[in-house]
Design a protein around this nucleic acid. Structure first.
Length: 878
RNA sequence: GGGCGAUUAGCUCAGAGGCAGAGCGCUACCUUCACACGGUAGAAGUCAGAGGUUCGAAUCCUCUAUCGCCCA
């Protein structure tokens, strides 16, 4: 930048050109890339890969901004940082997109075939898969794009196959004929955790199952009458007196005219319905277990698309399951089998992708035997090798891990990692291998590969190490695994975090990350989930357009209280846009007041405001480090915000104006240096504006990101400067307050009297110019004896009495009223203190320091009260 | 049914034993020379309710109410 460009700043900050410039600059200069060979300590992370189908939403914005703050902070602290980005192939989501587009053309996946379908999917990925990554770059995240990965790229496929084969060979992956959750719309099975339970208002139908050749009958209650077509038993509790006479008998299944046994099992809940339940092993998870235990036949009456099968009977075959329900009920009613109907609400499983009601479905599927893996994963957290932040998520994690079910990993989809299992067409022998066997290892017959693909989460579970080149022994793997931090939402602790821990421990023999930071959900201002149907989505790109990326990032950081959901408000964002503008203008002021030649600071000759701001800065650095170390982003944001606006701008800059006017070079240099430190501290939160401003300062280098993080040098701490400054601030504020209360316009200059002459002259004497400027004062008098209240308007700064001399005369009544009001307020505070101090228990039991603080405060208030009373009596005597 | 969290200024939220806080909004004054996306000053609270522990509770414990989320 030329000197000319450096000098001139626009009057207000325009984020757009600045953001475009620096995001390109950072990438061009490869500032985000991790180094394989480096003497620095490493800090690595992997980005939770967004779906290729994704468009950037606030959840992403939050989940990516927070760790970016950490990465930039770490990098400036001298770490070799590496944050690996990438995308997830999102099996079901892409599958649905392609199927939809086929449907629009009057085609279906069956019609075009697997090969063509996959060709279309890859084409789609090429075209749209980069959208989300481009949007990510807008956020200014310091991601190492040279290491970008995709869960379906070549290396990843190899890793996935390797894992599948290994686990199979160890007996941790098996194939079973099992009742699984199937989405009839997506036409695939889903794992247990892909099911969302929702309360649904339904009915409880009571159906009569008669005993043949008898007038007796059993009445069963069910929420799904259509499944009765597949009943193979009725179950009662063995101790249920009502039904003892039915033990060992058979009942007639209406509509189907089959005889089914009455079985007894302790699992049966006697309180549910009539205490007798129908058993449909092929269509209900509980009944499935019951059926296995009692050796019952499994009759499939509903197929994978939610339609009735042949086994349901001629009359119902081909009907949709819900149409069939109505028909069955109607039929039962007509034949007198329906006893009654009750309203009943119960939880029903829905597909997490398309919200269709799940159908339990009996079929051959692949499973991961999870217990041995979960055991290690539990231990790692118990041993503190992985820490959840906030820690209450640990409990949730354990709760889930202890009652974990085997994981159904096969999906009846085409887009994804095809299961590396092969079947002999002759003898049906199963072979699991990295590559397709030429022929059956038993009989030499031809082999075909399993049609199904793996659950998307199976591959994402390998993300922290497969992205680093595993199963090859790469340098990246050696340097960057295990990663240091995983930042993600609580909604995928089970889907993803737990499984990464299991797979990492299994295949890398080490945890995939040391800390898991769980951020909240981003909600709208009314705390509702953002959703398209509600129309309450706040689009991050729109916000960036309106307020700038830095403002968006700062808003998210300031609202990120660990463990809490975020209610995002646009007003707040506008506030932080103003903050960006404030920094812009503070920098503008600094630039306008720098002299041409380069100056060095002389720490020995610093004036009060400089000593004060450096002392404060030192404390702020400590506070920031502490907040960031503990992921208290909101706290860090508040600290830096307050420091910049209300200390650096409101007091420091205002205070040094006289010194600058006098051409104090030392102050100039100090001001510039302080601004530099501030820009560094703010950089992780607001990378764009800070980078831009820093480049305007003389002596800047390649990038602020490559600079070192400020160190809290204890030598800068200056109690005396802070004390003096506090007095001057109180003094100035008190004058301003009195001015405002007496409606004195700025132009009407007043004279200021300050008591305690020796002390106050020592504190304020050197800063009269600043006091005059900030308080609108003409002449300052230091006195030992204050003139009486009739001549001055009185106030107290700290414990020092002050008085303002007006050009016009004082309104006695008004002034008395003002003082009276203040006296009342003061006495209230004092009263509370005295009550406490007069309590002997307090003095005895409270810590000495607390007692001392109370006593000191009490004395101060007493002094103040005395002065107020004196002023009042003086006025009264007038 | 089990679990987790919330309830503090008009709004959004901090605070986790020792003076009740911030931002926005509101009121009044101010276009003073970095900034009106600004400055100065101000008003605004039964810290959901009831008990308890403590010298002292918004903060710890128990219960209640309301709202939200997760799991079954």
């Amino acid at each position: 930048m030329t000197t000319e460009e450096k000098k001139i700043l626009e009057k207000s900050y325009d984020p757009k050109p600045v953001e475009a410039k620096w995001s390109k600059f950072w990438l061009d200069n490869r500032l985000f890339e991790g180094q394989v060979k480096s003497s620095k300590p490493k800090f690595s992370m992997v980005l939770p890969p967004p779906n290729v189908t994704g468009v950037l939403h606030m959840g992403h914005a939050l989940c990516f901004t927070l760790p970016d703050i950490i990465v930039r902070w770490k990098k400036m602290q001298g770490y070799n940082t590496m944050w690996l980005p990438g995308t997830d192939h999102a099996s079901i989501a892409v599958h649905n997109v392609i199927e939809q587009s086929l449907k629009e053309k009057g085609l279906s996946r069956e019609k075009v075939g697997r090969e063509e379908f996959l060709r279309l999917a890859w084409e789609w990925k090429k075209k749209y898969g980069g959208v989300i990554t481009e949007q990510l770059k807008c956020l200014g995240c310091s991601l190492d794009w040279s290491r970008e990965r995709f869960t379906l790229d070549e290396g990843f496929c190899k890793a996935v196959n390797y894992v599948f084969v290994s686990l199979y060979n160890e007996g941790l992956i098996y194939r079973d004929y099992y009742l699984v959750n199937r989405c009839p719309r997506c036409q695939t099975v889903l794992s247990d955790i892909e099911i969302e339970h929702q309360e649904v208002k339904g009915h409880l139908w009571y159906i009569r199952y008669p005993l043949p050749d008898s007038s007796e009958e059993l009445v069963v209650a069910t929420t799904r009458p259509e499944t009765m077509l597949g009943d193979t038993a009725v179950a009662v509790h063995p101790d249920d007196e009502r039904y003892k006479k039915f033990h060992g008998k058979k009942v007639l299944l209406p509509l189907q005219n089959r005889l089914i046994p009455v079985i007894t099992d302790e699992q049966v809940e006697r309180d549910f319905g009539t205490g007798a339940v129908k058993v449909t092993p092929a269509h209900d998870p509980v009944d499935f277990e019951l059926g296995k235990k009692h050796g019952l036949e499994q009759i499939i009456v509903i197929d994978g698309s939610g339609h009735m099968t042949e086994a349901a009977g001629e009359e119902f075959k081909g009907l949709d399951r819900f149409v069939c329900r109505e028909k069955v009920v109607e039929k039962l009613k007509g034949l007198g089998y329906l006893v009654k109907v009750e309203d009943y609400s119960h939880a029903v499983g829905h597909c997490y992708r398309c919200k269709t009601i799940i159908e339990p479905f009996l079929s051959w599927q692949w499973f991961v035997k999870i217990e041995p893996l979960a055991k290690e994963a539990i231990k790692a957290v118990e041993d503190g090798k992985i820490v959840f932040i906030p820690e209450n998520w640990t409990k949730t994690y354990f709760d889930w891990m202890y009652k974990i079910h085997d994981w159904c990993i096969s999906r009846q989809l085409w887009w994804g990692h095809r299961i590396p299992a092969y079947y002999c067409e002759n003898c049906h022998h199963i072979m699991v291998a990295m590559d397709k066997p030429a022929a059956c290892e038993h009989c030499g017959g031809p082999v075909i590969q399993d049609e199904d693909v793996l659950d998307t989460w199976f591959s994402s579970a390998l993300w922290p190490f497969a992205t680093l080149g595993w199963p090859e022994e790469t340098e990246d793997l050696k340097v960057f695994y295990p990663t240091d931090l995983m930042s993600t939402g609580f909604d995928i602790i089970f889907f993803w975090v737990a499984r990464m821990i299991m797979m990492g421990l299994k295949f890398m023999k080490d945890v995939p990350f040391k800390e898991v930071f769980i951020n909240g959900l981003v909600r709208d201002v009314k705390k509702r989930k953002m959703s398209k149907s509600e129309g309450n989505i706040i689009d991050p790109l729109e916000m960036i357009d309106k307020y700038g990326t830095d403002a968006l990032r700062f808003t998210l950081a300031s609202l990120a209280v660990p463990g809490m959901d975020i209610a995002l408000s646009e007003e707040r964002m506008a506030g932080y846009r103003a903050f960006a503008n404030k920094i812009w203008n503070a920098s503008r002021f600094v630039l306008m007041n720098l002299s041409e030649e380069k100056t060095e600071t002389d720490p020995q000759a610093l004036t009060l405001p400089n000593r004060w701001i450096r002392s404060r800065l030192t404390r702020v650095i400590e506070e920031l480090n502490d907040s960031l170390k503990n992921y208290r982003f909101y706290e860090a944001a508040e600290t830096i915000y307050h420091f910049i606006w209300h200390e650096f701008c409101d007091w420091y800059i205002e205070f040094i104006k006289p010194e600058l006017k006098q051409g104090n070079k030392n102050t100039q240099a100090m001001m510039q240096d302080t601004l530099t430190q501030i820009l560094k501290l703010l950089h992780p939160f607001m990378p764009f504006i800070t980078e831009e401003l820093w480049h305007h300062l003389p002596g800047s280098g390649l990038s602020l990101l490559a600079e070192t993080w400020p160190v809290a040098d204890q030598r800068w701490l200056d109690e005396e400067a802070e004390e003096t400054m506090k007095f001057l601030q109180e003094l100035i504020s008190e004058v301003r307050r009195i001015r405002a209360e007496n409606e004195l316009p700025v132009r009407e200059k007043v004279n200021l009297w300050i008591s305690d002459r020796d002390k106050s002259q020592k504190l304020a004497g050197a800063h009269e110019e600043a006091i005059r400027l900030l308080a609108g004062v003409e002449r300052i008098e230091y006195v030992t004896e204050m003139p009486s209240a009739g001549h001055l308007i009185k106030g107290v700064a700290g414990t020092t009495e002050i008085g303002l001399q007006l050009a016009r005369s004082i309104d006695k009544e008004q002034e008395m009223e003002r003082l009276q009001k203040e006296l009342v307020r003061l006495e209230e505070d004092l009263g509370k203190l005295i009550v406490r101090l007069e309590n002997p228990d307090f003095k005895q039991k409270a810590p000495q320091q607390v007692v001392a603080e109370h006593e000191q405060r009490c004395q101060e208030l007493e002094l103040k009260k005395e002065k107020l009373l004196k002023s009042l009596s003086e006025l009264r005597e007038l």
